[in-house]
Simulated assay, not measured.
Amino acid sequence: MIEKPFVKWFDRKFDANIDIVQFDGILSRMEHFPAVLNQLLETCPKKIATIKTNGKWSVNENVGHLILLEDLWRRRFQDIKDGKPDMSPADLNNTATDQAFFNKSVLGELIKRLGDERAKTISLLQGMSKEDLLKKSIHPRLNQPMNIVDLMYFVAGHDEHHLSTIQSIIDNTMAL
């Protein structure tokens, strides 16, 4: 197996021309992500879940970050639906994640919270019409127009980025 080199999230490029016929498949990826994450983490010891290495987020902090972003995703989906020219900006410094003390939380509770927040996002997306899916707004960091499905693809990619990061944390910690 050839491993892909790790690419920092902010260095990634995204296709913003995803056909709306991909809606159901990407929605399914997003909907099932908390269960996939739970399966990976169901046996993760607390000691590993809260270890920070080289100033990087722990497993708990990665999951907490995903929880916090669900509100931003919903705002951005709503921005597009409402025809706003620009999507709501993100805190690119991730201040809320750094200040949330997620390492004091139980990992299983964080995963449940993520599932609850993601369910709200899925519900919002299921209520979108075909006309809504065709509308576009400018993504603030990427400075490119995106429709609902493009942003869903972006969110699913962000999920997978953190899944890979979490897997690396576990693998590297277990190897010690």
Rank of each mutant, 00 (worst) to 15 (best):
E61K: 08
N62G: 04
N62R: 09
V63L: 11
G64Q: 10
G64H: 09
G64R: 12
H65S: 06
L66T: 07
L68E: 11
L68R: 03
L68D: 06
L68Q: 12
L68M: 03
L69C: 07
L69N: 09
L69V: 01
E70R: 09
D71S: 08
L72H: 00
L72V: 08
W73G: 04
W73E: 00
R74T: 00
R74K: 11
F77Y: 12
F77L: 11
Q78P: 00
D79Y: 05
D79P: 03
D79T: 04
D79K: 03
I80L: 03
I80M: 02
I80C: 01
I80F: 02
K81L: 05
D82P: 01
D82Q: 14
K84C: 03
K84S: 05
P85W: 04
P85Y: 04
P85I: 15
D86C: 07
D86I: 13
D86M: 14
D86H: 12
M87H: 12
M87K: 13
S88Q: 14
P89C: 02
P89F: 01
A90E: 15
D91I: 07
D91R: 08
D91G: 09
L92E: 15
L92P: 01
N93S: 15
N94F: 15
T95W: 02
T95R: 15
T97E: 05
D98W: 08
Q99D: 11
F101S: 13
F102M: 09
N103E: 09
K104N: 13
K104M: 10
K104D: 13
V106W: 05
V106P: 00
L107A: 06
L107D: 06
L107V: 04
E109R: 10
L110W: 07
L110I: 08
K112D: 08
R113G: 02
G115T: 08
E117I: 03
E117T: 08
R118P: 05
R118Q: 12
A119P: 03
K120Y: 04
K120L: 15
K120E: 13
T121P: 05
T121V: 13
I122L: 11
I122S: 03
S123I: 05
S123K: 15
S123A: 15
L124T: 05
L124C: 06
L124E: 07
L125N: 11
L125E: 11
Q126N: 15
Q126R: 15
G127D: 05
G127Q: 13
M128W: 05
S129N: 08
E131P: 01
E131F: 01
D132W: 01
D132E: 11
K135H: 09
K135Y: 03
K136I: 02
K136Y: 02
K136L: 00
S137T: 03
I138P: 00
I138V: 15
H139G: 12
H139V: 14
P140G: 12
R141N: 10
R141W: 09
R141K: 14
L142Q: 14
L142F: 13
N143F: 08
Q144Y: 01
P145K: 15
P145A: 12
P145T: 11
M146E: 03
M146S: 06
I148G: 00
I148C: 13
V149W: 04
V149Q: 02
V149T: 14
D150E: 03
D150C: 05
D150H: 03
D150P: 02
L151A: 04
